[in-house]
Design a protein around this nucleic acid. Structure first.
Length: 818
RNA sequence: GCCCCGGUGGUGGAAUUGGUAGACACGCAGGACUUAAAAUCCUGUGACCCGCAACGGUCGUAACGGUUCAACUCCGUUCCGGGGCACCA
């Protein structure tokens, strides 16, 4: 009785299905355990062997926990809204809903093949109106909330309105300092018209609309979030991204910066992951500090800067303002005005991309001076593109002996450098140390720098010339896309004011469109639909991360049509105990879903404020590409023949002078022309070509299989001495164009799901990235056959019985397990 | 440039309050079975040395140095690989 995996697996999969064995109840006396995979985007390409790695790992763990007596929630679904489906629709005229549905069917079939123990009754699709009804509902929760900084949580906006009626906004600092009205009394509030009131409330909402500089990608026709832009180009497709001012929806994630940071201490994520997130949040503490300005116009009296190093105050040799700041025109001298104007024009001409790619040292003197409040020194005020308008106050105090950028700037423009750290500064490099003893530093002379920081902050607060201040690098997250294939906003505009739709009107369904072309003025395709526009409905749609920010909650209670997830149910399942997925979502999905969880927690909809207890990041499975080497003679050569040379010959060919005689003979066989000619003319073109890895065994090419792809008479081979063809190899990303993808279906068909699953796990640690190599799968398959034979002999059949095991047998068993 | 993680046989990896390095498995080699091959079973398998053999010896955890009776494990320096950040003051 041999190991007939096809029969075995088919039989069991059928049994599982019939008996609903993986159906999970929300009502169980067993302790719960929640194992979650990052749900896939159902792309048209289907699964390759890299995708199931994490699913297999989580599946094994889910089974383990189930056997250990836990009630295990292990669901699967689809992140079905997104750009590629829409792009495909534009190119092929197929509605995204149709192509997405077809893709999901393929995915499901492939997943079933591998024999996962998902509870498919809990499947979710983010593009399903029954699902996005609740995405819209949660959006409205955010829209109708503000962040109360004194209670440190999200609260309903009505609380704010009551407070405004009573006492204005004294107790509630407006998060947006740029807004035209930042403080008002109760009387003033009552005097405002409806539109002004709504505009003010918008400045507080956790989901808000505003005009902002956004990352606009012309090629994709949409706005992208910061984490979707890599080095000035779009993450998807690598298209140029420019800054553009547009009306946008945002999530006020900055209000959660501290809690997102603090929460990291309570979760089990890898250090690398935590670091990525905390870098992204980028908390820094220091002080804002005012400098008196001395300028011709004397319009502006104060320049406010942000610094993390108040201890270096006596080393300030110049100030720098970001070129975008309006204050520049109030302080520039008549003499410098032209130069300043010229410089601002130059900066405007530079794209973000250029600014990041070539970090040139540029800048111009404004003609104005700042006064150091501690020693009265006059400090020249410059403007330069290296200071960013969006961070801190957009102005800095420059300390060239301690900061590399300031140092280079000072050197470039010949600004004298004050040394406040003695021998720690060598005059050739800045030294950012905090451990030096201060010199030339007035009242903090002789102090160690890190101790002086506190002393100086206290002093400036005492003198009333500044405040202690914490800054974050993280910005509010752009939350709208000028696209079709996403959740519509449940928002209706009336006289330029956004109002939420009533809950009863949800879901606001995505209407059918004929064209996916963008609407006018940078608006999305929904702006082309007259009925939509007539109702003044929002024409933007939500970004891809909207649906994925809360899907782990919907799995708990997927069919509920009264609420997104019953509170009793979410209290039972609570946090995801084990979450498995790739690192690419470190600062996107993971941060957003953590924020949504915290907001839902604040508003009392769920009972926990961190969604994932433990996160494991599976490594990427890279492809191992194989190459054949094609030789063409470009002059007087063969007309239609192609010669494929094996690897060793290829390497020799690259070193023409080392070409062995035997090889010259080969060439004579297939290529007209003498070896010497070849050498002198070098009119030979050798091209490595990707060859389908599925017809290569290790590095040995299946020559017969290869020949089927080319007409026999046109293909010649120059083989190794043993008569084999050795391919070249290289590790690359797995992709169809590189012919290095391996389809799990083929492997499952050949070896069975158990072999395939075991082999994926055998490849190495889940967290590690590693190249796929089918070579070792035979060994795992043999191992499983051996295991099978422990129970069934090929001839004798069943070799086990139900007798009680002897002590010796128990020993063997446990030794084996160990 | 800065930050984080890692480096043990041909391969995946065992072994750390410092105490027999390489468990287990894959692969590979030799043998058995077979007309032959596959499958299967048995044996061997870090490198080197001595010996008919049993036994034994030397080296060995990226490299070098240090602490220790004792180092894969602790410390220092360097090299290599992977990942992240990159004008955030």
């Amino acid at each position: 009785m041999e190991y007939d995996f096809r029969k075995i697996e088919k039989e069991w999969q059928k049994k599982w299905k019939e008996s609903n064995v993986y159906k999970v109840s929300n009502d169980s006396p067993k302790p719960k355990y929640y194992v979650l995979d990052m749900f896939p985007y159902p792309s048209g390409a289907g699964l390759h062997v890299g995708h199931p790695l994490g699913y297999i790992a989580s599946d094994i763990y889910a089974r383990y926990k189930r056997l250990k007596g836990f009630n295990v929630l292990h669901p699967m679904g689809y992140d079905a809204f997104g750009l590629p489906a829409e792009q495909y629709a534009i190119d092929h005229g197929i509605h995204p809903a149709v192509s997405t549905d077809a893709n999901i069917k393929t995915f499901r079939k492939q997943l079933d093949n591998i024999g996962f123990c998902f509870d498919w009754d809990r499947e979710v699709r983010t593009s399903d109106p029954k699902y996005y009804k609740w995405t819209q509902w949660i959006f409205l929760q955010l829209f109708n909330s503000f962040y109360n900084r004194s209670t440190n949580k999200a609260e309903n906006i009505s609380i704010l309105m009551v407070a405004f009626e009573k006492e204005g906004n004294v107790k509630y600092t407006m998060p947006n300092a740029q807004f035209s009205i930042t403080s008002f009394s109760a009387a003033e509030w009552r005097g405002f018209d409806e539109k002004t009131k709504q505009d003010i409330l918008m400045q507080y909402r956790l989901a808000y609309c505003g005009i902002g500089e956004v990352n606009w990608c012309e090629a994709l026709g949409t706005v992208l979030a910061n984490d979707e832009v890599i080095n000035g180009v779009s993450e998807r497709g690598g298209y140029p991204v420019v800054k553009k001012k547009l009306r946008q929806w945002y999530l006020r994630i900055t209000e959660y910066a501290d809690r997102l940071l603090e929460g990291l201490e309570r979760v089990d994520f890898s250090e690398a992951m935590k670091e990525m997130q905390s870098n992204w949040i980028g908390k820094s503490s220091g002080a804002e500090m005012d400098f008196e300005v001395k300028s011709e116009k004397s319009k502006v009296k104060i320049l406010r800067v942000y610094t993390t190093r108040p201890d270096t105050i006596f080393g300030v040799d110049f100030m720098v303002i970001a070129p975008e700041l309006d204050i520049i025109h109030d302080i520039e001298s008549a003499e410098q005005a032209n130069a300043v104007e010229e410089y601002i024009t130059y900066v405007k001409s530079r794209s973000d991309r250029e600014r990041q790619a070539e970090k040139k040292i540029t800048g111009v003197f404004t003609g104005a001076y700042a006064i150091n409040p501690f020693d009265g020194r006059e400090i020249p005020i410059w403007i330069s593109e290296y200071v960013l308008a969006g961070y801190g106050t957009g102005a800095i105090m420059a300390v060239p002996c301690g900061d590399d950028r300031d140092f280079k700037f000072a050197k470039h423009f010949n600004i004298p450098i004050t040394n406040i750290i003695g021998k720690h500064f060598n005059g050739e490099d800045a030294n950012p140390t905090k451990d030096a003893v201060l010199e030339n530093s007035g009242f903090i002379n002789g102090m160690v720098m890190k101790d002086a920081i506190e002393v100086v902050i206290n002093k400036i607060e005492e003198l009333g010339i500044g405040v202690r201040k914490i800054n974050y690098r993280m910005r509010d997250a752009a939350f709208s896309r000028q696209r079709y294939w996403g959740e519509p906003f449940p928002i209706q505009w009336k006289n330029g004011t956004a109002y939420s739709l009533d809950e009863k009107e949800l879901p606001l369904e995505l209407p059918h469109v004929e064209s996916y072309k963008p609407g006018p003025d940078g608006e999305g395709p929904l702006a082309n639909i007259p009925e939509w526009v007539a109702k003044e409905l929002e024409t933007n749609t939500m970004p891809g991360y909207a649906g994925s920010s809360w899907y782990f909650l919907r799995y708990m209670d997927p069919l509920n049509d009264k609420t997104f997830c019953d509170r009793k149910v979410s209290d039972y399942w609570n946090q995801v105990d084990l979450y498995i997925g790739g690192t690419e979502h470190a600062v996107g999905h993971l941060l957003y879903s953590r924020m949504w969880t915290k907001a839902l927690y604040d508003l009392g909809h769920i009972g926990h404020d961190e969604p994932y207890k433990k996160l494991v990041n599976q490594g990427m499975i890279t492809g191992s590409s194989r190459f054949v080497y094609r030789v063409f003679l470009t002059a007087g050569g063969i007309k239609k023949g192609q010669v494929f040379v094996s690897k060793n010959h290829y390497e020799n060919l690259l070193l023409l002078k080392d070409l062995p005689i035997e090889f010259a003979n080969y060439i004579n066989k297939y290529i007209p022309g003498k070896y010497t000619e070849l050498r002198e003319n070098s009119e030979v073109n050798i091209t490595p070509l990707h060859v389908d890895v599925n017809i290569v065994d290790g590095v040995l090419l299946d020559i017969e299989a290869f020949k089927t792809k080319f007409p026999e008479d046109q293909v010649h081979f120059i083989l190794e001495d043993e008569g084999t063809y050795i391919c070249g190899s290289e590790v690359e990303k797995m992709s169809k164009s590189k012919f290095n993808t391996v389809n799990p279906d083929d492997l499952v068909a050949k070896y069975g799901a158990d072999t395939f699953r075991m082999y994926e796990m055998f490849l190495g640690p889940v967290e590690q990235s590693k190249p796929w190599d089918t070579k070792g799968i035979e060994g795992v398959h043999r191992f499983l056959k051996k295991l099978w034979r422990l129970f069934y002999d090929d001839i004798k059949g069943k070799v086990w019985n139900e007798e009680k095991a002897t002590e010796a047998e128990w020993k063997v068993l446990h030794r084996t397990i160990k």
